[in-house]
Amino acid sequence: TEEVEKIVRELQKRGVSQEEIQRILKRNGIDPRDVEHVVRRLR
């Protein structure tokens, strides 16, 4: 989703690792598959 993408991009800008990003998003109830998808697209 748009929202997830924004969050991921923001965290990446701050130098947060992929694993940490995924952990944060999972904690916020976001589907890990969505996270994977977004992270892969932004690489």
Rank of each mutant, 00 (worst) to 15 (best):
L42M: 04
I21F: 09
V16A: 09
Q18E: 13
E19A: 11
R41N: 08
V39D: 02
L25V: 01
Q12V: 15
L11F: 05
I24W: 11
V35F: 09
R27W: 07
E10S: 11
V38A: 07
E5H: 05
P32E: 07
E20R: 07
Q22R: 14
E3A: 11
E3Y: 13
R43Q: 14
K26Y: 14
L42N: 04
K26R: 12
H37R: 14
Q18P: 12
H37P: 02
K13S: 10
R33V: 08
E36L: 07
V39W: 06
G29E: 02
L11Q: 00
L11T: 00
I24N: 01
K26L: 15
R33N: 08
P32R: 02
Q12S: 11
L11D: 00
R41H: 10
R40P: 08
V8G: 01
L11H: 01
R43L: 15
V4E: 01
H37T: 13
R9S: 04
L42D: 03
E20T: 07
E2V: 09
Q22C: 14
V39Q: 03
V39T: 07
E3H: 11
R27M: 12
V35I: 14
R23C: 15
N28Q: 13
V4F: 05
R40W: 02
R43I: 12
I24M: 10
E2P: 08
T1S: 08
R27G: 06
E19H: 10
K6P: 02
E36I: 06
R9C: 14
E36Q: 06
R9L: 06
D34I: 15
R9F: 05
R9K: 05
V16T: 06
R14I: 07
Q12L: 15
R40L: 03
E19G: 09
Q18A: 12
K6L: 07
E5N: 04
V38N: 01
E19V: 09
N28H: 13
S17D: 08
K6I: 07
L11P: 00
D31K: 04
N28S: 13
R23I: 08
R27I: 09
I30S: 02
L25D: 00
R43D: 11
T1L: 14
V39M: 15
I7N: 02
L25T: 01
E36H: 04
D31Q: 03
G29V: 01
G15F: 04
I24T: 05
R14D: 04
L11G: 00
I24F: 09
E20I: 06
I24A: 05
S17I: 03
R33E: 09
V16D: 01
V16P: 00
E3K: 10
I7Q: 08
L25I: 01
R41D: 09
I21C: 14
I30M: 08
R43E: 14
E19K: 10
V38T: 03
V39S: 03
V4L: 15
K13Y: 07
L11E: 00
K26G: 07
D31R: 04
K13L: 11
E36P: 02
H37Y: 12
R23Y: 10
G29F: 03
G15T: 01
N28T: 11
Q12P: 00
E5P: 02
V35D: 12
R14P: 01
E20P: 00
R23K: 08
S17A: 06
Q22D: 03
K26P: 00
E5M: 13
E10C: 15
G29Y: 02
Q12H: 14
G15I: 02
L11M: 10
V38P: 00
R23D: 06
E3L: 12
L11Y: 05
N28W: 14
L25N: 00
E36F: 04
L25R: 00
L42G: 05
H37E: 15
V35P: 01
L25P: 00
I24P: 00
L42R: 07
V4M: 07
K6W: 10
V35H: 02
G29A: 02
Q22Y: 15
K13N: 08
R43P: 08
N28F: 14
I7P: 00
V4D: 01
E2R: 11
Q22K: 14
R40C: 15
D34C: 15
E2W: 12
E2D: 11
R27C: 15
I21Q: 01
G15M: 04
G29Q: 02
P32Q: 04
I7M: 13
E20D: 10
G15D: 02
I7C: 13
Q18N: 13
E20F: 07
R33C: 14
E2I: 10
L42P: 04
E10T: 11
K26A: 12
E5F: 14
G15A: 03
N28A: 14
V35Y: 12
K6F: 09
T1D: 08
K26V: 14
I30D: 01
V35G: 01
R14S: 06
E10Q: 12
Q22M: 15
V39A: 03
I21N: 00
R41G: 05
E19L: 11
R43A: 14
D34N: 05
E36G: 03
E3Q: 10
I7V: 08
K13D: 05
P32A: 06
I21M: 10
V38D: 01
Q18D: 14
R41V: 04
H37V: 12
E19Y: 12
V4Y: 05
N28C: 15
E36Y: 06
R27T: 05
K26W: 13
R33A: 11
I30K: 02
E5R: 05
S17Q: 05
R27A: 12
V4R: 01
V39E: 03
R14T: 05
T1Y: 13
L11W: 05
Q12T: 12
D31N: 09
E3V: 10
D31A: 05
R40A: 09
E3D: 10
V35T: 02
I21E: 00
V35N: 01
Q22G: 09
Q18M: 15
K6T: 06
L42A: 06
I24L: 11
D34S: 07
T1P: 10
V8H: 00
E20Q: 08
P32H: 03
R14G: 05
Q22H: 09
E5L: 11
N28P: 03
T1N: 08
R41A: 07
R14N: 08
R43S: 12
